[in-house]
Design a protein around this nucleic acid. Sequence first.
DNA 1: TGTCAGTTTGCAACCGGGTTGCATGATGGG
DNA 2: CCCATCATGCAACCCGGTTGCAAACTGACA
Lengths: 144, 144
Amino acid sequence: MAVETIEQQLQAHGIHPTAARILVLQKLSELTHPVSMTELETELETMDKSTIFRTLNVLLEHHAIHSFEDGSGSTKYEICRCESTVCRVENRHIHFYCEECRRTFCIEDVKIPVVALPEGYRIETINYTVKGLCPECSKRKPIV
Amino acid sequence: MAVETIEQQLQAHGIHPTAARILVLQKLSELTHPVSMTELETELETMDKSTIFRTLNVLLEHHAIHSFEDGSGSTKYEICRCESTVCRVENRHIHFYCEECRRTFCIEDVKIPVVALPEGYRIETINYTVKGLCPECSKRKPIV
DNA sequence: TGTCAGTTTGCAACCGGGTTGCATGATGGG
DNA sequence: CCCATCATGCAACCCGGTTGCAAACTGACA
């Protein structure tokens, strides 16, 4: 993807660029790890929770960002770094949730394996999250 | 697995069989689809929410049942039908969540694809849930 | 069989993520 | 410049999940 401003990214996805949307997308593009709504709330103190909520939904609907559940109890959001405006599910990477330190990792190198479903199912998105111990915590904990 | 009573199943997993635990496991073994805590609550009217909650956790800890997040917002539970008392992740089937009718389907025939993670990660469990439209709803909705 | 410690359960209250209604504020087209 | 429309903040709410505590139960031992 060519270098472009946040505003251009929004417009490319057909989203009317407002201050809130620029700020949220900006923040998401800065962060190197997926964040929850609550984390965004603390990052963007000036912005109301409901605004963040609605902004994230707009970004999601227009496929400017992804969301997924990692089992931490709160949905995580991350910017979509696809070339095109539509991001195919097989291009998305998997995530790892550490049950010890409760951090969520992007495993950029590993893409979501796509299975074949029985006739009739229409796939919209796939959630592939591995849970366990991250390398750091794994070292500290003995093998059972 | 040989035919055995719910009580025996509990004991096989090292769980002290109490009335509540038998009822919950009983109910889970009857149901053919994964259920949320709330659904269990309505199924088992006599039992308190907190009891169900704690019971599910006991069953989970002892690997008598599985849980997973389907993106509906509430965790789903289903009985573990593995031969052995430990259920390997590659034997588990995937789930499909219909965004239209909000039902969760077991796709028994399709097992969770297991990926290789970078050095250091210790895998405990994998959540693989496909979201989209189920065959029924797919028929009713035009292709975009 | 009675007693006691440890376990299980129900009740009530709580927490926090997510969601909504409503009123105000910004925006862009005519 | 004005109005319709969209975006935002505020406050309240909903609901799944969680916890503290006291009462009920259970099982081991005397």
